[in-house]
Computed example of a mutant assay.
Amino acid sequence: MNIEKSSGFAQNSGMGLNPVILVVDFMKGFTDRDSPLGSNLDNEIKATNELLNIARKECVPIIFTSVSYDPGFQEGAHFIRKIPALKILSAGSEACEIDPRLERNEQTELLVVKKFASAFFGTAISSVLSHQRIDTVIIVGCSTSGCIRATVVDALQHGYLVVVPEECVGDRSQSAHDASLSDIQMKYGDVVSLETVKKYLTHLKGDISNV
């Protein structure tokens, strides 16, 4: 991603020494093209698998998020009214399951259920990351303009360095995807290549300020 570094914007924050991979909403309801909430995320799933394979080898923690609602959907409040298709995400439904292509290890890779866009809103993620002394949140998943961007902003506001490998995030709208990545790089986190993050996880040298 080429973004001109104007004065005061789009500087790189770098990466720390204790990262986590946060896989946001790569669940069947979003990755199945036949779903009313779905889109083609095959390439993003493949790229994310590359990252997760290295993370598992290097013992970097991985956290997944999903969205689900109890019957009545009261937890969704006005979000459900704005996006009625969210009603397919009924607790226990197949749509709420993590895409099996990601091969989540249920014993070691935490699943956090959320109700709104940000993975931090109304969940215990911040406490989990604090307990594990995490300093860097690498965010992958979907959708770039919705849950990814919201999670990026909240991660920054909770005091974490934020990294988004651009091949590992996707959206139903290419224009919204591109605009959101630009906005993230300008103000909230570092949008970098998958290869950059893979090298970082392998060596954990931390500083990507010149990338």
Rank of each mutant, 00 (worst) to 15 (best):
M1C: 09
N2I: 15
S6W: 02
N12E: 10
N12R: 15
S13D: 14
I21N: 12
I21S: 15
V24K: 04
F26L: 13
F30M: 08
T31E: 12
D34M: 15
D34V: 07
G38M: 13
A47I: 13
T48A: 15
N49R: 15
N53E: 15
K57P: 03
F64C: 00
T65L: 04
T65G: 01
S66A: 00
S68G: 10
Y69M: 03
G72M: 08
Q74S: 05
E75H: 02
E75A: 09
H78F: 08
F79D: 07
F79Y: 10
I80V: 06
I83W: 01
P84A: 01
A85G: 04
A85R: 10
S90A: 05
E94L: 10
E94H: 11
R104S: 09
E109S: 12
V112I: 13
V112R: 14
V113I: 05
V113G: 02
A117P: 00
F121H: 14
I125A: 04
S130L: 05
S130T: 06
R133Q: 14
D135G: 10
V140L: 12
G141F: 09
C142R: 02
S143P: 00
T144F: 09
T144L: 06
S145D: 03
A150V: 05
V152N: 06
A155H: 12
L156F: 15
Y160D: 06
G170V: 02
G170P: 13
D171S: 07
D171M: 04
S173W: 00
S175F: 13
S175N: 09
L181A: 02
M186F: 09
K187D: 01
K187E: 04
Y188G: 01
G189L: 09
D190W: 02
D190Y: 05
D190M: 03
V191I: 14
V192P: 02
S193A: 03
L194E: 08
V197N: 09
K198T: 04
K199L: 06
Y200R: 13
L201W: 04
K205M: 11
I208M: 08
V211L: 12
V211M: 06
